[in-house]
Design a protein around this nucleic acid. Structure first.
Lengths: 217, 217
DNA sequence: ACCTGCTTGTTACCTGCGGTAACAAGAGTG
DNA sequence: CACTCTTGTTACCGCAGGTAACAAGCAGGT
């Protein structure tokens, strides 16, 4: 024993460094080849062979979870920041948060597709139909986080916590579905999308008139 | 040639009947074993062997698509019915449609999980992480259908069509995410969930007060 | 009667993946 | 030196999706 730190700690640190390196290699492969990247491919990118990956991550799910957690944490961090940033009123705050989310998925669609739709692999048409998927964990985390924020900041009266959780998951789902569709079809600018969604949440559907001549809605 | 119909038509009809039979067998297996059912298992259930399945459906994705389409059509049909049923006002109509959707996923969670989360297989913990998934097609279809209904019935002024599509996908996403979370955790009754979601869409978040002592939101 | 064409079905195989067992080599420690 | 711990390897298993090649039944044409 030469150093002040115990040998045990040295080994732990080395293992964690290695783990990070492996995760970065996996990240590169997943972002290049899509989420159906094989363990062999990831191992090759990292310059090693399969069993090492399995020693570090248990199984493929473990690796994917670790990978997803990194990205999810980062996304959650920026959303929290947008939610906490100063804003003139609640609507601006909501718009800023929506815009942050949409900017994130717009800026790195590969990451987004890995987190949400590991199905559609790369350039391929809609050939493969079923592949890996792990959207649920991310969406559930986002929903719960938003619920926390709502219950903590909005006065909702009795039963408010339950309502906040419903809203949290509902709003996250709205944002996700609309963002997914928008990213795929790009039917309008980001600002317009944000505005439309905010209008929806601000109850414009409730007060819009029926179309003349059509059935009531 | 004995019958009035051409022999060609007879064969086509027979092939389609066979296809339906195979789909029903596949349905049974998928609903029993979960969405990760193997082609061998499906073939066995149908009393035949793999290559026949491949002759009928091309590949596994083809079979799953065909299966998903059946269920999606059925769901869409009942949602349409709820949307077209007589109702005193728009809010009741929306609530009835939400309730129809939630009832459907509540009544047949196996089908729902197949359509949306083919991942979590059966009783298993969260071991397997990635499996088949095809939620996107269903969600996109629902979103587009709802957009049609909105644009057709609600007066939104210029740019209304774009807004309607955003709303369609957003509302469907909200319903889906909230429903998924609710089905998993059952935190409240169906009626309450419907009511909370309707309140959200009716803009209650917009008019709720800030919580005293907390930061603004 | 015989051959032809078509569909239905089979067996037996290939490929590639996730995952694992068994073993080799280096390095610190008594 | 022997012991152990980690890192790495090769070689394999089981199983999935997918396919080729061939057998059998059954129209219809000549």
């Amino acid at each position: 024993m030469e150093t002040g730190t115990s040998q045990r700690d040295d080994q732990r640190q080395a293992a964690e460094r290695r783990r990070r390196e492996l995760l970065e290699a996996a990240d590169r492969v997943v972002l290049r080849d899509g989420p159906e990247a094989s363990m062999n491919a990831i191992a090759a990118e990292a310059g090693i062979t399969k069993p090492i990956l399995y020693r570090h991550f248990g199984d493929k799910g473990g690796l994917y979870r670790a990978l997803a957690k990194r990205h999810t944490d980062a996304l959650l961090f920026s959303l929290r920041a947008a939610l906490d940033a100063p804003a003139p009123d609640r609507r601006r705050r909501v718009e800023a948060t929506l815009d942050t989310y949409l900017s994130a998925i717009e800026a790195r669609p590969q990451v987004y597709r890995f987190l949400m739709h590991p199905a559609d692999h790369g350039q391929q048409q809609e050939q493969g139909f079923d592949v890996g998927h792990h959207s649920a964990p991310l969406l559930r985390r986002l929903g719960e986080e938003l619920a926390k924020v709502i219950v903590e900041r909005v006065e909702l009266g009795p039963g408010g916590e339950e309502q906040a959780r419903v809203w949290g998951h509902g709003i996250v789902g709205m944002m996700h579905a609309a963002g997914d569709w928008w990213l795929r079809e790009r039917p309008c600018s980001r600002e317009q999308l944000v505005s439309h969604l905010a209008e929806l949440m601000w109850g414009r559907l409730a007060v819009a008139d029926d179309r003349v001549g059509g059935p009531t809605f």
